[in-house]
Design a protein around this nucleic acid. Structure first.
Length: 948
RNA sequence: GGGAGUAUAGCUCAGCGGUUUAGAGCAUCUGCCUUACACGCAGAGGGUCACAGGUCCGAAUCCUGUUACUCCCACCA
């Protein structure tokens, strides 16, 4: 059967994903293996897959697949987040299109619609995750509002309330006038905006120019108009809020306003007279140094109001329009009102001036509406106590962040933490289990898991009240979505309701959490708190923070900018493996990923490369008669060593969560070492068969390479793994053992490295001499080093011997393969480069198209030369020697070597260096010196030979 | 305003006191349709390691300062 020369992901991906599902390979049950647990950061149930998800989930999949292959019982639990605000907004919009207002149908009816919407349209993203190969245990798919999670949340709320950690209070909160709910501090995004700074005139009651207090050398901040009336100028960005002004505040140290405290000023356009107060909070050099105080609509003003007992006038309705306090502006939107009020004030000559001004305005993360600070009754969770524990476990390393720098951010936040506003004025979410009841005219509250329990408690507390269940009215609000997500690692295994169940005991704590740094406070920190509070144990050991996916211009990808490619479409075009690989290759932990589609090409090309390597190997005919040649034995042995070497590196990378580097190391091992070198080394001549032993070794190497690559590129590796050998029904690469590093001899790799340099040198000579790539050449080499360890005459006979032997020794006579240790020792005897390369003489000849590869004491006449280590390789070429070019090159090389030598000599000439540097370092410098001198001599000889 | 981080080839990053006067992948350039692969092969070019001081026998690497950028927190109305 002819195999296509291009790898086609479409024929493969779908097939294997269904196969994995069908064989239930993703599913995990507790057993006696060591667990490896990852919980997915639950995407919004309304969400669709974007590049951020793609990156995040690919990383999780790599970790999970690798752990599974390392023999761990891997469990990756998927699920979605009910996302109160986002989902409710979607449902409200959908109803609006049908002409339905949420308030008209009521809570219960609305919830029916919402659930219906969730069932029909929600969770799309989970289906998309299958496309990217996510090996989640889908049987465990959860939802932050399903029964288990709902009950867990309610239980936790009641518990924390009973512990005295949850309280209800009237506070200044961030009000989202669009979603009509309070949001937490973390959900407010401050954006730079170009606005105006309005300077307004507040007339001082009963003061004339003559009354202005005089302070020596200081010009008073007060001004006098044409009519002789005195006013103070106050700057504001929000003139509409003057309707709620109840004071003007100046700094007591501000001499311009000395003696003003106690006077009253008139709020422009409103006519209300308010006090002038003094407080150091006011910045003297901002605006005019006078601040209008609106306690109901600014957090700082609120604080001032509390301090000085000011009246608080709330002028806004919940939806951001003016209420009755707005007088003639009642009903206007706050921004419309701003324009109108300024127009009116201008007309009344109450505006001093208007300046352009850039400031930061808080927007709602979910709805993008401008946040309105608003006083309202909300539920809060006390943070101080639980924050302390959460800080400790990160500080003492029980939880590690990757990269570590996020520990700073984390610490800073926890040390300055404020209480968490957990109530939301929405319906879609866990309804707060607080019940209000009137007892002798007072409004009392009972918190309990359900109405029955609440009723029982109420009757116990007020036995004489003769209460009926319907006297208890449940709180209208729901809980912040994060109040359910913070329990996720526990509630997924039902560890809140049944803290001693087998699953939670087995799977918790989880191992790795992979998430974006922007939810470190929202989610990561709070999960740690919940873990400590409800398990007395951290929820995970490692947190891998991904970067943010940006576009080529460095902008964050967003729907509104339209700069985000559709991952599904990318996967269609480049193959899932290609996209996965491309992303991972350029995304070290914590680094932003400037995404460019071209990075997917690299992944696609790589998949194709492996595919073609498979085509090559599968195309070979295998001979059972032929013995393995010495060169093939050497090749196999070298490849095994390279694998062991790279595996060690890869394991190190994974231990440090440097996934990009692990992938790069694997990539190079496969492409360079395996495809470019190894396969060429053992490839039989056209039409010839390959010996059985080498063939089997090659397949075995190939299989293991696929295992190493599988976590990164699951589909193509599964396909090739199956094509390499007949596999039993149900077999999968997913459950193969990940190869692990074994002992390898670095010196043994040296010979091949040198051989590769010789081959490259010969190819280069061919190229620069205008010879065809297969024109056969000879190579003579000799050692130019004069250092003692390399005295040529000692080793020469031996070398000659090995070199000539290399071609004739058949496998049966050598120990290749079966006894690597011996061979290594032989090759590295004396540590000589020439000895080392001898072993690969046959390889040099084969890949370099070299006829004679010999050691020569005297260099032949008329040869081009190149250096490999301290060996000079001479290649006799008769044609096309471009003397000038050659000379130029040699001169440049000479200059480089001389410069290098000068540096070394300078070091050695420095007495302090020789006396204070470690002996090995000095010795190394001396070696460098003699090597460089030898090279310089060789180059000079070449130059004079050319010039002769 | 406070804090953290980064600055190394065109791009993304490694290197974090001495490892032949800086490495990789991609991109670029030059040859090649060599029967696994042009999604390829073979070569080549490309960096005064942001700048200025300092410590040291020795600095891309440690310290200080400057500049630029990024992120987080606060929010001067």
């Amino acid at each position: 059967m002819e195999t296509a020369s291009k790898y086609d992901p479409k024929l493969v991906e779908e097939k294997w994903y269904s196969y994995w599902l069908e064989k239930k390979i993703f599913h995990s049950e507790p057993d006696n293996r060591k667990p490896y647990t990852v919980v997915i950061p639950p995407p919004n149930v309304t969400g669709v897959l974007h590049m951020g998800h793609m990156l995040n989930n690919t990383i999780q999949d790599v970790l999970v697949r690798r752990a599974r292959m390392m023999g761990r019982n891997a469990c990756w639990v998927p699920g979605t987040d009910h996302a109160s605000i986002a989902t409710e907004a979607k449902v409200v919009n959908m109803l609006k299109e049908k002409g339905i207002d949420k308030r008209d149908i009521g809570r219960d009816e609305f919830m029916k619609h919402a659930w219906q919407w969730k069932e029909e349209h929600g969770g799309m993203i989970l289906k998309q995750l299958r496309k990217l190969g996510a090996s989640c245990d889908w049987d465990r798919t959860a939802f932050t509002m399903d029964d288990v999670r709902y009950e867990s949340v309610i239980k936790v709320f009641c518990d924390l309330y009973r512990k005295g950690l949850i309280y209800r209070g009237v506070r200044m909160v961030n009000w989202d006038p669009k979603a009509l709910t309070a949001v937490s501090d973390e959900e407010v995004i401050y954006k730079e905006s170009h606005s105006k700074l309005f300077y307004l005139r507040y007339y001082v009651e009963g003061m004339t120019a003559a009354d202005i207090p005089v302070v020596e050398d200081v010009v008073s901040g007060l001004k006098v108009d044409e009519a002789g009336k005195v006013y103070i100028v106050v700057a504001t960005t929000r003139p509409e809020t003057i309707l709620g002004d109840t004071a003007v505040c100046v700094n007591p140290n501000d001499l311009r306003y000395k003696g003003l405290a106690g006077h009253r000023v008139v709020v422009p356009g409103v006519g209300r007279a308010v006090r002038i107060i003094e407080d150091e909070y006011v910045e003297m050099d901002f605006g005019t140094g006078a601040l209008k105080v609106t306690p109901a609509h600014d957090i700082n003003d609120y604080n001032l109001g509390m301090k000085y007992g000011l009246e608080s006038i709330d002028i806004f309705n919940d939806n951001g329009t003016l209420n009755a306090e707005g007088g003639k502006y009642e009903g206007l939107d706050r921004f419309v009102c701003r324009k109108q009020i300024m127009k009116d004030l201008e007309e009344a000559a109450l505006v001093e001036k208007v300046e352009d001004y850039t400031n930061k305005v808080g927007h709602s993360e979910r709805t993008d509406a401008v946040i309105e600070p608003k006083l309202s009754a909300q539920w809060f969770l006390k943070m101080e106590q639980i924050a302390k524990k959460a800080l400790e476990v990160v500080e003492d390393g029980q939880i590690q962040f990757h990269p570590d720098k996020f520990r700073n951010t984390y610490r800073h936040w926890l040390e300055n933490i404020k209480d968490w506003c957990i109530s939301r004025q929405l319906w879609w979410g866990q309804r707060i289990p607080a019940y209000y009841v009137e007892i002798e005219g007072r409004r009392e509250v009972v918190v309990a898991e359900n109405l029955n329990l609440a009723y029982q408690e109420a009757t116990k507390r007020w036995p004489n009240a003769a209460l009926k269940p319907e006297d208890l009215i449940q709180d209208e609000d729901v809980l912040d979505t994060w109040f359910s997500s913070w329990l996720w690692p526990i509630s997924l295994f039902d560890g809140i309701r049944n803290p001693d169940n087998d699953e939670i005991k087995y799977y918790y704590p989880t191992d790795d959490l992979v998430t974006a740094p922007d939810i470190i406070f929202f989610w990561v920190a709070r999960m740690i708190m919940a873990g400590e509070e409800y398990r007395g144990e951290v929820p995970f050991r490692h947190v891998y923070f991904t970067g943010i996916v940006r576009d080529k211009l460095g902008r964050k990808m967003s729907k509104s900018l339209g700069n985000s490619p559709d991952p599904i479409e990318l996967m269609e075009r480049y193959g899932t493996d290609g996209v996965r690989m491309g992303m991972l290759l350029t995304a070290p932990a914590g680094n932003d990923l400037p995404f460019d589609e071209s990075i997917c090409e690299q992944g696609r090309n790589f998949a194709n490369k492996i595919w073609n390597a498979m085509r090559l190997v599968k195309g070979w005919t295998v001979s059972d008669e032929d013995n393995q040649t010495f060169d093939n034995g050497v090749s196999v042995e070298w490849m095994e060593q390279r694998m062991a070497c790279q595996l060690e590196e890869i394991e190190r990378c994974f231990a440090d969560y440097r996934l990009s580097e692990a992938l790069m190391a694997t990539y190079k091992l496969v492409w360079d070492d395996f495809c470019s070198w190894y396969l060429e080394m053992v490839k039989p001549a056209f039409g010839k068969p390959i010996d059985r032993e080498t063939y089997e070794a090659t397949i075995h190497i190939f299989e293991r390479l696929m295992c190493m690559l599988h976590p990164f590129m699951p589909f193509v590796t599964e396909e090739i793994w199956h094509q390499l050998r007949q596999r039993p029904e149900g077999a999968t690469i997913m459950l193969q053992h990940m190869p692990h590093s074994v002992f390898y001899d670095e010196r043994a790799l040296l010979g091949m490295t040198l051989a590769q340099e010789v081959i490259a040198g010969v190819r280069n000579i061919r190229k620069t001499s205008g010879l065809g790539p297969k024109e056969v050449l000879d190579v003579y080499m000799h050692n130019v080093s004069h250092s003692e360890s390399n005295v040529g005459s000692n080793t020469l006979p031996n070398q000659r011997n090995v070199m000539s032997e290399a071609n004739n020794v058949s496998h049966s006579e050598s120990n290749v393969g079966s006894n690597t240790g011996n061979v290594m020792n032989e090759a590295s005897k004396g540590g000589d480069e020439v000895t080392a390369i001898n072993r690969y003489a046959g390889i040099v000849k084969k890949l370099g198209f070299v006829e004679k590869f010999e050691y020569a004491e005297q260099k032949p006449e008329g040869a081009k030369t190149f250096m490999v280590g301290t060996m000079e390789c001479c290649v006799p070429v008769t044609l096309n020697i471009d003397k000038d070019a050659e000379l130029q090159k040699l001169e440049a090389d000479l200059k480089h070597q001389e410069g290098f030598l000068a540096g070394v000599l300078k070091k050695l000439g420095n007495e302090k260096f020789v006396s204070s540097a470690p002996a090995q370092v000095v010795e190394l410098e001396r070696k460098k010196k003699s090597d460089a001198e030898a090279k310089i001599a060789a180059i000079k000889a070449q130059i004079s030979a050319l010039q002769a």
